[in-house]
């Protein structure tokens, strides 16, 4: 009951940039373990919280059902990079710590995940117990003309889903993927978010420049300061956040204890995972999630 009251108070006070609401959704574990840090899942740029919890399935319920105290965060719509690292993520981590105390484990993905890593090296220093990073690029380059075109036109991912951009979305997120039927049918309409022109432009310029511009220490300096354990999951067929741009973490963050897991068919997986299928693919609960669970267990 006390926990519920605290959460209600948190929800009431939890407003994002420019008054737009953020979302912080706790998932109660089926069997509360009372052990281990809370797990905060943060979607990548352009994704909503559904990437972790789509109609009751996904990594968030998977972890919750195994006793982890799981929170899914969705930043305020349109929050720019500086707001993400300086206000949104600290607010989310702070809110979870209010309830749970102690540092949290963050689960992050893609370019937004790279920003979360950068925050872990500066704003969130000392507040993070570990990070699970799904294809988080440290080298920011335009991966292909498709993403460039989408960002150039304003990054309206949610709007693209219903129009001519459907093929582009398919290529970016699910080319060659095996998705659950409900995900294939409904995720693009429910789980994608329009970036808004300013954020799309900022993302594109960062890809063209080679790194995001952040307040305080540079992106590279922030990454170098990350000193917590990191599980780096690399999906071979990710077209938005190429695994090869993420793979430099061991050199760029020498103080982080990085565990790498490459996922592709030759490594025994059922498919070569994409940006979407690595979290919502039909085989992800068998191929991907056990790596996350095992690594989290190692933190306990």
């Amino acid at each position: 009951m006390i926990r519920l009251l605290v959460l209600l108070c948190l929800a009431a006070a939890f407003n994002g940039a420019h008054g737009a609401p953020r979302a912080l959704v706790p998932l109660s574990p089926a069997v509360p373990s009372g052990r281990g840090p809370a797990v905060l899942l943060v979607p990548g740029l352009g994704f909503g919280r559904e990437i972790y919890d789509f109609h009751g399935q996904g990594l968030a319920p998977h972890l919750a059902s195994r006793g982890w105290d799981v929170w899914v965060f969705e930043p305020a719509p349109g929050a720019n990079f500086a707001e993400l690292v300086g206000r949104e993520l600290p607010a989310a981590v702070g809110a979870v710590r209010e309830v749970r105390g102690g540092p949290v484990v963050m689960v992050v993905q893609g370019h937004g995940g790279a920003l979360a890593l950068a925050a872990a090296g500066h704003e969130l220093s000392g507040q993070v117990a570990g990070i699970v990073a799904f294809n988080t690029p440290l080298e920011w380059e335009l991966p292909n003309p498709v993403l460039g075109g989408v960002l150039e036109r304003g990054g309206d991912l949610g709007s693209l889903a219903g129009g001519e951009g459907r093929a582009e979305l398919q290529l970016l997120y699910a080319h060659g993927a095996t998705l659950r039927p409900d995900v294939a049918a409904h995720f693009s309409a429910e789980g994608l978010r329009d970036l808004g022109r300013p954020l799309a432009r900022e993302w594109l310029e960062a890809l063209q420049r080679g790194a995001p511009v952040l307040p305080g220490p540079s992106f590279r300096e922030r990454i170098a300061r990350v000193d917590v354990p990191v599980l780096q999951v690399l999906a071979l067929r990710d077209v938005v956040a190429h695994p090869e741009y993420a793979s430099a973490l061991r050199e760029r963050a020498p103080r982080a204890r990085v565990t790498v897991r490459e996922l592709d068919r030759f490594q025994g997986c059922a498919e070569d995972y994409t940006h979407l299928s690595v979290l919502l693919g039909g085989h992800a609960p068998k191929d991907v999630f056990p790596h996350v669970v095992a690594w989290l267990e190692s933190l306990r």
Binding site: E139, L236, R237, H242, E244, S247, E262
Partner: peptide, 19 residues
């Protein structure tokens, strides 16, 4: 040069050389 679905000299492995 790397092939997107190269599982031997994967993009991960080839990019390391590029760096």
């Amino acid at each position: 040069v790397a092939g997107k679905l190269d599982r031997l000299g994967s993009p991960l492995a080839a990019r390391d050389g590029y760096r």
